[in-house]
Amino acid sequence: MNLVIVDYKAGNVQSVMFALERLGINATLSCDFETIKSADKVIFPGVGEASSAMTQLKSRNLDKLLPTLEQPFFGVCLGMQLLCQHSEEGNTDLLGIIPLPVKRIETDLKVPHMGWNQLENLQSPLFVGIKEQDFVYYVHSYYVPMSEYTIAQTSYPEPFSAALHYKNFYAAQFHPEKSGPAGSQILKNFLAL
C-alpha cells in the first residue's frame, strides 16, 4: 500500500511515522502535490497552532489540494481541526472540508484537556476491536462540537467529537500514535478501510 503522511512541518509527523513503523508499515513523508494525490491512503497529522499550520499549508498549496482528495484520509488532532470550517484559535479560516466549527474549550476544568480519557458511542469501522470506555490520549485546547459526522465522543466535561467521518475523510481529536495498543488498533483499522 502506498501510504503518504502529509509533511507540512507543523505537526509531530515523526511520531506517526514511528507508530506506523511499529505496525510494519513504511509510509512516505511528502508535501508534494502529485505524491499525495497518487497515494492509496493519506494521513494528516498535526500538533500546534491553527493559524501557523494554515500558513504552512498555504505556502505549499496544500490548502487547494487536500479538499480535492478522494482516497481514505485520516486527520489527527490538529489535523482533524484543520479539516473543519473555522477555528476560534487565532480566528482562523480552515480547509473547509467538513462543515463544522472549532471552538475553544470553555470550562472550569484545566485547559489544555491533557491526558487519557475515554471513547464512547463508537460508530465506525475505524473502531473495530475498540471497546466503549477504552482510553486514548488527548492534548488540546480547542474542540469540534458534537455533530451528525461524529463517530465517537469523549466528555470534558461536556461531550465533544472524539472522531469524525465525512465522505472519505476520517479524523480523530486524540492521538492514536500515542494511545498505546488501542491507538495502534485504530491506525490498523484505518489502513484496512
Binding site: 509531530n12 497552532e49 501557523s52 490538529l78 492534548v139
Partner: peptide, 28 residues
C-alpha cells in the same frame, strides 16, 4: 518525536521564550 518539552532555567533567563515556543508550536 518528543510530544512536549520542559523548560526551566532558560524561562527564568528569558521569559519571552515561553511565549515564542507557545506561538510557534502551541501551548500544549
Amino acid at each position: 518525536g518528543a510530544d512536549k518539552v520542559s523548560i526551566n532555567s532558560s524561562a527564568i533567563r528569558n521569559p519571552e521564550l515561553v511565549r515564542e515556543l507557545a506561538d510557534r508550536f502551541g501551548s500544549q
